[in-house]
Amino acid sequence: MSLSQLSSRVWRDGEVVAESIPLDTLSNELADNHTLSWYDLTDPDHEDIDTLAEELNLDFHTVEDAQAPGERPKVTRYPDHLFLTTYAATIGETDDPNSRLIVSQVSVWVFAHGVISVHRDDLPEITEVLNRLDANPDLVSNGPMGVVHAILDVLVDGHFDTAQHFDDVVEQVEDQLFDDSIDTQKVQKRVYRLRKELVQFRRIVLPMREIVSTISRPSREAVAVPRVLEPYFNDLYDHSMRVSEWSDSLRDLVATIFETNLSIQDAKLNAVMKKLAGWAAIIAVPTLITGWFGQNIPFLGDGRPLGLWISVGLIVVSSVVLYLVFRKEDWI
Rank of each mutant, 00 (worst) to 15 (best):
A66K: 03
K274G: 05
A53R: 03
F201N: 02
F166T: 01
P231M: 01
W309C: 04
E221W: 03
A222P: 08
V205Q: 09
T94G: 15
D24A: 14
K274F: 06
D138E: 15
G146P: 03
S240D: 09
R220H: 13
H61D: 14
D157N: 00
E71C: 12
I21Y: 02
M145A: 00
D157C: 01
R251N: 04
N33H: 08
V316N: 15
R202A: 04
L177C: 01
I126P: 08
V199Y: 07
V108Q: 00
F111K: 07
H159E: 02
I91Y: 02
V320Y: 09
T42F: 13
F166Y: 00
V205I: 11
Y87I: 09
S4P: 09
A255I: 07
A280I: 12
H165W: 14
V316R: 11
G70W: 11
Q176T: 10
G294R: 04
E93P: 09
E29Q: 15
S107T: 13
E245P: 12
T85D: 05
R72T: 12
E221H: 05
G143N: 03
Y232K: 01
I310Y: 05
E259Y: 09
I264M: 00
V148S: 02
R209Q: 12
I289A: 01
L177I: 07
Y87G: 05
H149N: 12
E29R: 13
L133Q: 06
H34W: 04
Q67F: 02
R12T: 12
V129T: 09
G143Q: 08
A53P: 08
D13L: 01
D235F: 04
P305G: 06
Q200C: 08
V312W: 14
G291H: 03
